[in-house]
Design a protein around this nucleic acid. Structure first.
Length: 461
RNA sequence: UCCCCUGUAGCUCAGUCGGUAGAGCAGGUGGCUGUUAACCACCCUGUCGGCGGUUCAAGUCCGUCCGGGGGAGCCA
């Protein structure tokens, strides 16, 4: 395996090397031709210098255009130019795949992200999407690093769920039934007993409930996998298929949960800033001005904490400027979440203890009987990035909550068993991975931070 | 799902009061230059998203469908 361009760029002049990659631009003059070669290992490419007096092969050079795949051997030489320390003086060039200029969609000019979305199979060859891919890689690895270093066990919760107990959004149906000839029950409804699993099955919207079962044996666990929501939502921060990280901790209350969420986010930001210096500088300059400073500041500053009740008091002071005025009991809108983090706290804030009516059944009921131990981490620009809670660990209270919400406890028998046998305070949260990538890169649209976005009416490539 | 904006050359866009389309970039040719968002000159490029309607005449006005973007809701 030949060295990557990122490595070649740091070598001493005088080294003989082979560089492989795709041509980004070609600049020709009478005596010399410059090729910029990129192999995705770094934002910066390697400048190849072809001395036309020595390299007499105009047919070959004529076929090497933007997008062509080539390998070039030669000697690294200290560059006369100012934009690079070393450059490669070509001795031999092998052309693997041409990229004809009249049909190759990528030109050596700026393209809009909307256009690039239409050529998702080629867009990773651009500076921006390439940088996103590298940052996404760093973040994925950092997720595992953080949890592994803190003794969490990685758990693979199921993708297909037949428990019908998740209730976190619209789900995709998984079936092998013949849609042209669906078996029916006498009352006209679908007979799922004839389906593959013998009952209705759907794609998971959360691994939390299964995650809790493992936490109540292994103490600290996390999941990191694909998640599916069939919501008909068309926004720049929703996908039908996305990746979610869900840690779950036993012997842990909301306070511990908040601490881990904060530590975790800060760890991710630190890793990206230290491992993707060049890419982060690029985002900070061209995608979201000053991004780097904001992240550095977030790492330094303790997250603010605020109860829902106090948050509503703050918001009521500013009710005049909201489209939807706030009162105690109302759900916080995006405009409110952003106001809290951007204006009130000027940084990330964790809002806790929401009214039970606007949160999920499994969240622990507070002694006031009105609020639950929920937490949302709100960040400037994006709003909610993490949602979590301490779970209700008391069997009776949980059953009461379920009855109140017309959930059938029988459907949740195994989940309730966790409260029957060795129950203990436990807590966890969910982080939408793409939201984290968005926050870190400053990318405005979530469809540009996942390789092949799946959304309403969109499943190309 | 609702509201708003938008669709014109390969890309990004302009196109006035309705009179059959233009600029920059990309590409080609030539020139110049160790270039790096290269530069200069010339040249090429169109189902004006689709369908229907109004009109002597539609890129332009009306209807409708489709695509794209933004906001809201839902949430991660």
């Amino acid at each position: 395996m030949n060295a990557r361009i990122a490595q070649l760029l740091s070598l001493q002049a005088g080294t003989k090397v082979v560089a492989e990659g795709w041509v980004r631009t070609k600049r020709e003059s009478k005596t010399v031709c410059f090729l910029e070669l990129n192999d995705g290992s770094s934002l910066k490419g390697l400048q190849i210098v072809v001395d036309l007096a020595l390299f007499n092969n105009p047919e070959l050079l004529g076929k090497i255009n933007t997008g062509a795949a080539i390998a070039c051997s030669g000697v690294l030489v200290e560059s006369i130019g100012t934009n690079q320390a070393v450059e490669l003086h070509a001795e031999t060039i092998e052309l693997f795949g041409e990229a004809p200029v009249d049909t190759y969609p990528l030109q050596k000019k700026r393209h809009t992200l909307e256009f690039l979305r239409e050529i998702a199979h080629l867009r990773v060859r651009t500076n921006t999407i390439g940088a996103v891919a590298r940052v996404r890689n760093t973040l994925s690895f950092a997720v595992h690093e953080f949890f592994q270093e803190h003794g969490f066990v990685y758990v693979h919760t199921p993708i297909i769920s037949a428990s019908d107990a998740e209730g976190a959004g619209e789900q995709f149906l998984v079936t092998t039934l013949d849609l042209k000839d669906v078996p029916k029950l006498p009352d006209g409804s679908v007979d799922y007993s004839k389906d593959f699993f013998g009952k209705q099955a759907k794609l998971t919207v959360s691994g939390q409930l299964e995650g809790e079962t493992y936490a109540l044996a292994l103490k600290n666990i996390y999941t990191f996998g694909p998640t599916f929501r069939a919501e008909n939502s068309n926004t720049k921060r929703h996908l039908a298929e996305f990746w979610m990280i869900e840690p779950e901790m036993a012997f842990c209350t909301l306070e511990g949960n908040m601490a881990v969420a904060e530590q975790f986010l800060k760890f991710l930001f630190k890793r990206v800033l230290s491992r993707n210096t060049e890419d982060m500088e690029f985002f900070s300059q061209f995608v979201e001005k000053g991004l780097r400073n904001v992240l550095e500041q977030v790492i330094e500053t303790p997250f603010s904490h605020m109860t829902y009740t106090d948050a509503v008091k703050e918001l009521e002071k500013a009710n005049g400027q909201f489209d939807y005025p706030v009162h105690w009991g109302s759900d916080l809108q995006t405009e409110h979440e952003r106001y809290l983090s951007e204006t009130v706290c000027k940084g990330p804030v964790i809002v806790t203890d929401y009214p039970k009516e606007i949160k999920a059944f499994y969240m622990k009921l507070n002694d006031d009987g009105k609020t639950v131990r929920a937490m949302d981490v709100l960040v400037p620009r994006l709003g909610e990035i993490i949602g979590g809670s301490e779970r209700e660990s008391r069997l009776e209270v949980l059953q009461d909550r379920m009855n109140l919400l017309n959930l059938n406890p029988a459907d949740y028998w195994w989940y309730l068993d966790l409260r029957r046998f060795g129950s203990v305070p436990h807590a966890g949260f969910g982080l939408g991975f793409e939201r984290a990538v968005q926050y870190v890169t400053g990318m405005q649209n979530i469809r540009d931070v996942i390789p092949f976005p799946r959304a309403v009416k969109q499943a190309d490539f």
